[in-house]
Design a protein around this nucleic acid. Structure first.
Lengths: 173, 173, 173, 173
DNA sequence: TTTT
DNA sequence: TTTT
């Protein structure tokens, strides 16, 4: 208890399909790899520069995890809100490693799909899902919309093949 | 100076095309009407409820204003960040009125277009713009991407006719 | 239309003690008046300018409302997070009025007291609270994290001597 | 891929005095170590639990860096806003390491001191600063708002006696 | 009505 | 390493 705030807000694209694991309790845990990028014009050279940042996101929350599992795909654009958490672990050589993640927990996190509306005509990421109910806005709240929103938007969207391919190559973890 | 923070973050859709005015200085001022909505299942009735909130957004910033003017259209989905400000004014009867707006100012605000990517094939809001460079991410910063980002995304998107029509009907200001 | 976000983040001071009302259900509703201010040096005149903004905050949430009622006083500095909501109402002359408020609801809002540390020695804002327990951080969640916070990730968030030592040794700046 | 947002908001305490370095350009770079903590009551055991998270913050910005250097001390409570960035580096054994930091850059970040009010009487964190001027709110903007803040909107932000009176009279709750 |  |  210390009057503190630990909040991360991201709008970015998934570099891969959600990675779903089960905890010993059976609860799902979903890992996402989310890219944000910024571009600017270099003052000196006048060149256009771009920098992509990759974020590890972990969803510890039945409800959000299920939605992520069902509705998110590689390339999807999401809004998400969580907290920073750094874990220490040892690699195979016993070396200490630290990994910083954005953690979404029950009542402490939010996840919103930001695309989907315009894909009615087909589309999809890779091999195309059927669409329908793809846009899904999920408040991390069981009584306020949680998991029940959306459904009225239709399709969903992709980053296009190039984007996805590039992502595979570049993800640093 | 008081260690204070006044920040609004919205992800929503434009209910109308941007409204551009000129100040006496010639600088553009852009007003946006942005809808956010949430839906939830009513516990008692089991019905699905939805509530839309309309936000008045004012952009006092050459750069952002220009981008808004050029790239935003009715139905566009945006991420924006600004500050709350309440103005007092008198109506024609001399009655005091208060209007609360989200103000984006130079170095104090951000605006990002969140759709557009998947519209390469045409689409558009109403009468269709040509697309190209429609997705535009704008940092409110002249040296970090400001106004120069994007361009690589292609089309842009709409909320579809229904959405737009409904909006016209419902905007309460 | 989903995939929307409506979020306000304020750090400011209470202009008055919390105003507590009861709903017909008996649940408390707390209204706060929160000031944020910003100051800057006017480029033309060189003068120091200041502008204060007043925000109406409404807490619809038993837990948060109780904490606000108990721990917040005029002058208190708070961090709070809620959603914008505009209500229409009629004044005594039947004139339409709109009031925009920052609403904190269950699972949708946060409230943190940011002072208190230095009140131990007595003090307090007005007529002095007893001290002790002044700083109060309140997540809008009745049991957030619970047993799931750390343990289920098999890691730890740094801290501890090792971490510091390692960092000193290894981080190259 | 544009239309992205990468934002971190922290309210926490400095675990040490700011660490100031100079870049080859002579510009200061300030590193902060910021703690956030959360506490909750464990449902099973009923015990009070606490978890502290440490954040590495890097300030690349003359103005903010100077303020941090001058006004921040171990123990200080701050509000800060920046972007996540993960750097890869090699330790002395040639092992790859990743460090995630919250980066504050020009026009992209904010820093606010949240204590100070109660330091007038001396005190201070460690060995006492002179007091006065302790609270310092710093927008990451060399002249933000400037003459454009309020005046150009022809309004005012409420405040003032009228506002309060009107409200008392008219607001129906 | 706060705070600096 | 902070804070409560």
């Amino acid at each position: 208890m210390a009057g503190s705030v630990n909040k991360v807000i991201l709008v970015g694209n998934l570099g891969a399909d959600p990675d779903v694991k089960r905890m010993s309790s059976g609860d799902p845990v979903v890992n996402l790899s989310v890219a944000t990028s910024e571009s600017w014009r270099d003052k000196a050279s006048g060149e256009r520069k771009e920098r992509t940042e990759w974020h590890r996101v972990v969803i510890f929350n039945d409800q959000l995890a299920k939605v992520a599992e069902q509705y998110l795909k590689k390339g999807a654009k999401v809004y998400l809100e969580g907290a920073l958490q750094t874990r220490k672990w040892q690699d195979q050589n016993g070396q200490d490693k630290y990994t910083t993640e954005i953690v979404l927990q029950r009542y402490r996190g939010e996840l919103q799909m930001l695309d989907g509306r315009n894909e009615r005509d087909g589309g999809g990421y890779q091999g195309g899902q059927s669409g329908g109910g793809q846009q899904r806005s999920v408040s991390n709240d069981s009584g306020y919309g949680g998991g029940n929103q959306g459904g009225n938007q239709g399709g969903q969207s992709s980053g296009g093949g190039d984007f996805s391919r590039d992502m595979d190559d570049e993800i640093p973890f």
